[in-house]
Amino acid sequence: MKKIIEVKHLTKKYRKIKAIDNLSFYVFENEILGLLGPNGSGKTTTINAMLSLLSYDKGNICYLGKEITPDSYDIKKEIGVVFQEIAVFDELTVYENIDYFCGLYIEDKKIRKKYVDDAIKLVKLEQFVNYKPKALSGGLKRRLNIACGIAHKPKIIFLDEPTVAVDPQSRNNILEGIKKLRENGATIIYTTHYMEEVEKICDRIIILDKGKIICQGTKEELKQLTGIEEKVTIEINNLDRNHIEKFKKLQNVKNVEYRFENLEITFIKGKNNFTKLIDYLKKEKISYNKIYSEMPTLNDVFLELTGKDLKD
């Protein structure tokens, strides 16, 4: 795999606070890389530094071996960014906004028209081309924000929490669009604090906390880190306290919790955990309503590594 971007020892301080602390990672060609982290973990700061908008205290950032500076117009030409905050002009219509930003890269008018139309199609804003941003709902505005960032068909795309405060339908639209961009050959750096999104679309994941990388790798690699095999949830009414202690003594059981009539049992690696559990329930004549087994989530990974929940 070809490394497109190399970030080494990147450190950025705001006065005394280290917003990001000694980050090193690669971005490979045509992958979707997820930067996952809670609020304030340094995702936006990392992106802005990688765009050469922010000065940083240490480290360097290379695109195909070339260090980026504000004058690296040849590199910047290949980059598209969707900022976390909506950055469009209220005075211009949907079409004009996309055309304006696209025109900062694409001079040829014919090509530009096609590109703008493509972008509108991608985010499904065809019916709204003559609307002003103020007349758009939050989700539609987000889509416009995306279109403005990617209309010039860049090879490298940064998306900073593009789905925040968006309804599920718009969110799916956006995620589909991002997948399509990758199919068309783009490399994507995607930040979010929704782990479900990362699990859905990212090839590789970097988890950030307090400005530091706490782990990186593919989904499977990260889940290995937890040492958890599976998590079984059983709905049981009025479970006896004594039973809980007994569950804890079963083979391979790592943790047992009983909340809101739900018994959650996490298993470490081992064979046939689930079947053994069902056998045990029969033997003890414990009646239950529902039982299901899950793989560990990225939240479990985060919990394991930082001792806190990724969700607020």
Binding site: L53, Y73, K76, F83, C148
Partner: peptide
């Protein structure tokens, strides 16, 4: 100075 400004500034147009 502005969110739009950031978008303009990362483009490949000379300042």
């Amino acid at each position: 100075m502005s969110k739009q400004g950031a978008r303009v500034a990362i483009s490949s147009i000379k300042k």
